[in-house]
Amino acid sequence: MDYIKAFVVGGLICVGVQIFMDKTKLMPGRIMVGMVCLGALLGALGIYEPFAKWAGCGATVPLSGFGNSLFKGVKKAVDQEGFIGIFKGEFTAAAVGLSAAIIFAYIATWFAKPHMKK
């Protein structure tokens, strides 16, 4: 059941974005930015977390889930440490994903090179 929910919800989010992309011709870079900001906003409005609880990875794997976890991190830090938490929580939340992406990407440059498109 988990898997079906993840598949359908994740798939539907992608379909929504695909329609948006095809209609507006926005570049993927802008789409990614929009998804993260939207996720953070929905998180702050208390909508995303219950949704993610229900949909599992269908909601956490898309970038909106990343945005949600950014806000979650800030909220937690504010709850624990007060004002300074506003400056701290984003990166605590993003730490794992960000580190993994840039570290693996850097290591990848030791081995791989760009390929000509066919």
Partner: peptide
């Protein structure tokens, strides 16, 4: 298309 852009894998 968006199926590869939206997930965290697209970010990576």
């Amino acid at each position: 298309g968006a199926g590869t852009v939206v997930p965290i894998t697209g970010f990576a």
